[in-house]
Design a protein around this nucleic acid. Structure first.
Length: 573
DNA sequence: GCCGTTTTCGGCCCGACTGTTTTCAGTCG
């Protein structure tokens, strides 16, 4: 049974959580967390690395001990250490640490003082007023615990980037108008363009922090003010989104922007770089002793630790600091590089606009081409085209292209990959198309081997140009199907098949790490919107952000090429 | 538990805010 990196990382994170509750050495706890982060970001599967006899202790943050534990997990699917400490620490304490404001120490103190055995017991104790009586606890903590448990918000879900934008952009605009605010910017994972964000970190430049924050907490959509000081405040909006605001004086702006953009592990690595040079880096600046030597801009900060500015999308401590140090940062793809969109639907299947309307919208984006990829016949719920209907659409596109000026429609189809890997339309029909996108829409639950083989079999057909939304995931709704990504990428490379990076913010399929793996293997990527309306073409920017997070450059992306060049790549036969 | 131009020990990122107590630990980011 394949063991995935994410499972191993989760085991290590769980060990860290439990060790923390047991008050183990905090650096040992951190070692497990660091290892989990390293593992989560690896571009290769640990299982494969082991099978190929590689020494895992050469990986960063993995030493002899953890390498041995990984081997054990891969072999048995379990880690005895985790089983042992799981027995020692009641599950309810672990759950209690998910209440904001309750960490490992207080969770343990609560359960020991009150002799509780579940979170329900904790709720009961809070309602009966027994928590406030414990030394070190008080009324406020008790009220908070009661509220958090009743709201059932233990944990808190991450919000999709596009959803966060809907709340963030109007809020930012409003903040910019507060008196005394010189400028404002959203930092955090939002600025790094992660596919989901946990909260918003907003920085404002201004002098009178107390007044600015006071005004901020009066924003129309603020439901609760969790904390409020002179430089910092945390509120929750009615939408459930948590917003942290920090007021930054001008000389520290760059340092604060860098610090609060993160990621945390990028910052830690950055501070080590500073330490190596005998300097100290924090959110106020870069310091030589007590003297601030940089801080106004991010460029200054990086320059001070002898690095070029690193784009926020790369700041995940996935090797960007080392690459920057060697002058080997990728030249990332940018919106202006895109010459066309290779996945779009019309009213012929489940789209909302006609061929003409889609062509016009693509032209307005400055594109050279737009591929029309309506569904194939098996997709009855999406009004998939019959063979005759596709024949007719190909003729229609041909005729329309004669009339169109400055944009070319490509005759295409999003053909279903059937359960056995064969295609929903015969080759004879597909041969008439400019290119073919092949996607899986059914039987997403197949076992990893069968799912992987199914897609590889589809790629065996040289008429298939691009595999659409390869993993089928929908963020927050549906997990990725089980796929051996390394094998899939190798198969794509061997066959010259392109993989899609679906730019729909609900999909963003491939993930950033998969994009990076693809680039490392030399697999071409198409960033496509899968637009079902003219507005949907605008999702390209989410795909580009994702590609940039995956270190992709112009040359990795096929739809940065003119059709003359692109046609040679997508016509493999 | 990891790591090393300070290499087998002794370090390990850093500061704000809260709630509690009255000088600070815990938590968070």
């Amino acid at each position: 049974m394949p063991v995935h990196n994410s499972e191993i990382a989760t085991i290590f994170d769980n060990v860290a959580d439990l060790l923390e509750i047991e008050e183990a050495n905090r650096f040992r706890v951190r070692a497990y967390r660091n290892a989990a982060n390293t593992i989560r970001d690896l571009s290769r599967s640990l299982q494969n690395m082991l099978e190929e006899g590689e020494d895992l202790s050469e990986l960063p943050d993995i030493g002899e001990d953890l390498a041995g534990k990984i081997e054990e997990i891969v072999r048995t699917g379990r880690l005895p250490l985790l089983d042992e400490i799981s027995d020692e620490v009641p599950e309810a304490i672990v759950e209690a640490t998910r209440i904001p404001g309750i960490g490992p120490k207080r969770a343990r103190a609560l359960f020991e003082a009150l002799d509780l055995s579940s979170v329900d017991d904790l709720k009961e104790a809070a309602e009966e007023g027994r928590i406030a009586a414990i030394e070190g606890f008080g009324e406020k903590t008790q009220a908070r615990i009661r509220k958090e448990i009743n709201q059932g918000v233990i944990g808190g879900e991450r919000i999709r980037l596009d959803v966060a934008e809907d709340f963030a952009e109007p809020l930012l605009e409003w903040i910019c108008k507060i008196e005394g605010v010189a400028k404002a910017e959203i930092a955090g994972s939002y600025r790094r363009r992660k596919e989901t964000v946990g909260d918003l970190d907003i920085l404002v430049q201004g002098e009178d922090g107390g007044a600015i924050i006071d005004r901020f907490t009066k924003y129309d959509e603020v439901e609760e003010v969790a904390s409020q000081g002179k430089t910092r405040s945390t509120v929750t909006l009615r939408s459930g989104l948590q917003v942290d605001l920090r007021v930054i004086p001008e000389p520290s702006w760059g340092a604060a922007l860098h610090y609060f953009t993160g990621s945390k592990s990028h910052n830690i690595a950055g501070r080590r770089c500073a330490q190596d040079r005998g300097l100290k880096l924090n959110e106020y600046g870069l310091f030589d002793g007590k003297k601030r030597i940089a801080g106004t801009t991010e460029e200054e900060i990086y320059d001070g630790i002898n690095l070029p500015w690193i784009d926020p999308v790369l700041r995940e401590n996935r090797g960007e600091i080392e690459a920057a140090d060697k002058g080997e940062l990728p030249v990332l793809i940018k919106p202006a590089d895109i010459k066309g969109d290779l996945h779009a639907h019309t009213t012929a299947s489940d789209g909302k606009n006609s061929l003409e309307e889609m062509a016009q919208a693509a032209k307005e984006k400055g594109y050279e081409y737009l591929a029309i990829t309506d569904h194939s016949k098996s997709q009855t719920q999406a009004r998939g085209l019959s063979e005759d209907a596709l024949h007719r659409q190909i003729d229609e596109i041909g005729a329309l292209n004669d009339k169109l000026d400055g944009i070319r429609l490509l005759a295409s189809c999003e053909v279903d990959i059937l359960e056995d890997g064969s295609l929903d339309f015969p080759d004879k029909l597909l041969e008439r198309l400019d290119l073919v996108v092949a996607s899986v829409h059914s039987k997403l639950e197949l076992a990893e081997d069968r799912q992987t083989e199914r897609m590889i079999r589809a790629m065996d057909n040289p008429l298939v140009s691009i595999i659409g939304h390869p993993t089928g995931r929908r963020i927050g709704e549906r997990k990725s199907c089980a796929l051996d990504m390394e094998r899939l990428l190798q198969a794509a490379k061997d066959r010259g098949c392109v993989l899609e990076l679906n730019a729909n913010p609900v999909r963003l399929d491939l993930k950033d790490v998969h994009c990076r793996m693809a680039a490392e293997k030399g697999v071409d990527i198409a960033i496509s919107t899968d637009a079902h309306s003219t507005g949907g073409l605008g999702n390209m920017r989410f795909g580009i952000d994702q590609a940039r997070r995956g270190w992709l450059a112009t040359e990795n992306i096929v739809n940065t090429r003119s059709w003359n060049n692109l046609s040679k790549i997508v016509r493999r036969n």
